[in-house]
């Protein structure tokens, strides 16, 4: 199994834990002890990091261009870009659905707990990671790159 495919599997299953745990803990701490700089920064950092994590292979791919062993080639880049694009499309649909559903259920004169907003963001991250991982795995297919089944 090629390295990028292993990374896709890793991202598919363990990616959630890497941002869901710190994100949820930050929301819980803020709810329990009141908002302060530390949980807000922890949440913001986690969410930005997780949402833009897909940029990392492109940056490292460019930095390691001079290396002899190629682990992230043009095909991987194309697959990654397509997966991220699919994930962003689904993420947009999720945000539209989440906003309109809450708006309809509560009614335009109602109010919601402000905690709904960071929780919606975390939900978006779960969907983004799931779709991105799934799209990568589908595009790589069952066979490995350069290897016969």
């Amino acid at each position: 199994m090629i390295q990028t495919k292993i990374e896709s599997w890793f991202y598919f299953f363990l990616g959630y834990a890497c941002f869901l745990i710190p994100g949820s803990v930050a929301i819980f701490i803020a709810y329990d002890r009141g908002i302060s700089f530390a949980p807000a920064l922890m949440f913001t950092g986690t969410v930005i990091w997780a949402g833009l994590f897909w940029l990392l292979p492109f940056t490292f791919g460019k930095l390691g261009k001079g290396k002899k062993k190629v682990t992230f080639d043009e095909r991987d880049q194309l697959i990654q870009k397509k997966s991220v694009m699919a994930a962003y499309v689904v993420l947009w649909l999720y945000f539209v659905a989440a906003s309109v559903t809450a708006w309809c259920i509560v009614g335009p004169h109602g109010s919601i707990s402000v905690n709904v907003m960071p929780l919606t963001l975390l939900g978006g991250l779960v969907i983004f990671t799931f779709v991105q991982g799934l799209a990568s795995l589908i595009q790589y297919g069952r066979s490995d790159k350069g290897e016969k089944q």
């Binding site: 929301i27 803020a30 709810y31 009141g34 908002i35 989440a98 906003s99 809450a102 708006w103 509560v106 009614g107 335009p108 109602g110 109010s111 919601i112 707990s113 402000v114 905690n115 907003m117």
Partner: peptide, 10 residues
């Protein structure tokens, strides 16, 4: 975190 906002914000 204990506060509420208008749903129109969404």
């Amino acid at each position: 975190p204990q506060g509420t906002v208008s749903v129109n914000i969404l």
